[in-house]
Design a binder for these strands. Structure first.
Lengths: 238, 238
DNA sequence: GTTGCCGGCTTACATAGGTTAAGGTGCGGC
DNA sequence: GCCGCACCTTAACCTATGTAAGCCGGCAAC
């Protein structure tokens, strides 16, 4: 049950056995969820943090008139509301697929981090990596054309799913609708459809029945002007 | 010299005198900078964190062909490269005005946070608030029209400058060019000019000679669909 | 005081992307 | 085996925003 969490923490280098034990005794509870479930609502002040064990989710905010913006996608191993530890949630989290979250009580988590500062730093670093991704999205939406923007998004998703071990030979489950894609890229649904067809037409990918298939990875990266360094996949903590 | 830092940390509630002393003995050095100075370069792996003591700066990334995206503006009291503590900088920081930064050595900072976990949490919370602002910018750029988008940006800047005590009767120093404004909002310079004239035409603000004057604050907030809750101005740490 | 430059402003024109509306397709429910 | 619904697709048209080019005013350098 803690495998995902330990793995996520150890991206930044191995933990000591004492640290690992401390993490494992957090008193966490796991909970299944259904596709489309609201995992965290805008305005919540949760009493525990959620680790995504299985499945996918996304972060979003909706304006009064219904326009929605998706701010990130999440894959197993991600802490999806770590910021809720200190701030009320200013956005919601919704499940894309069925899956499972692990609930880590705030109080226990804070104690753990106080007594094991190195572990605390790793949680902090997770939120810093999220922030780096937010910045990349600002750049993507602000300065790239629809075609490049969508390609870039797919590149990011594939790399992250791959790291979670969920890509098999270029194929992965990624059940988004074109509306989701529009809301993530700041485009209209119609234009997203047009652009997606262009990407398909170039033989770069296919997205159907909830499955994303990358047909030409170098081509997709080029189309998305993609450079994964902002994901900080290999950085280790001090 | 530490006034700004202590103030920033105490937004989240008072520190104990022990904590305050520990912060004050960080061995920090202050450095002046000129307008346009590159405070942190993309790719840097700094050995200290910078607190903005005086002046303004902005965070940005430039693409190969010269397109630039500004990701945030910063005011005195902000830690501008706290993420550099754990990750190499994936973007640069440039001075907008003349000013001064305080250098806090990473090693000392890490020791401080290990021995005073409550102080560590507050630094962490600062980066979480930055992340909340990044998310708001994603929404702003992705889902709002040029007019609303620019108005929203000015609202944010004014609120933050106000909190730093730099707004006097609606007037504040904010020496950005229209090009800066374009790069922050993802618009072209020409369209930024048009839109700015519309805002002026509505009697909402004036921006000239490096000075921003808010002429109609309620009107500007309405135009920017602005709700400051994402800035988490009053949240206190656990 | 001329020169050069930067930032602001304008105009004319081009286009990426939005809007509206309608038809098609697959699929679960009954 | 039909219905309804969610999603995808297409088409026609529109407009917000981008591009290219040039001018103007102020100010710093010499």
């Amino acid at each position: 049950m803690f495998r995902r969490l330990i793995e996520s923490l150890e991206v930044l280098g191995p933990l000591t056995s004492g640290e690992r034990e401390a993490v494992e005794s957090l008193g966490a509870v796991s909970r299944p969820f259904a596709p489309g479930a609201e995992l965290v609502a805008e305005g919540d002040a949760p009493a525990h943090c959620r680790l995504l064990l299985e499945g996918q989710a996304f972060r979003h905010r909706t304006l009064a008139d219904g326009r929605r913006q998706i701010m990130s996608f999440h894959t197993p191993g991600d802490m999806i509301d770590l910021e809720g530890l200190f701030l009320p949630m200013d956005h919601g989290l919704t499940a894309l697929t069925a899956g499972e979250v692990l609930h880590l009580p705030h109080a226990r988590l804070l104690d753990l981090m106080d007594s094991h500062p190195r572990v605390g730093r790793r949680f902090w670093t997770m939120t810093l990596k999220d922030a780096a991704i937010f910045r990349e999205w600002i750049l993507n939406i602000g300065r790239r054309t629809a075609y490049v923007r969508i390609a870039h998004l797919f590149c990011e998703v594939v790399v992250r799913l791959q790291r979670a071990g969920l890509v098999d030979n270029g194929r992965c489950a990624f059940p988004i609708t074109q509306q989701h894609l529009s809301d993530a890229t700041g485009l209209s649904a119609v234009h997203t459809n047009r652009t997606l067809q262009a990407l398909r037409g170039e033989g770069l990918l296919s997205l159907r029945g909830g499955e994303l298939v990358v047909l030409d990875w170098p081509g997709l990266q080029a189309a998305g002007e993609f450079d994964s360094s902002y994901l900080h996949l290999r950085e280790s903590a001090a």
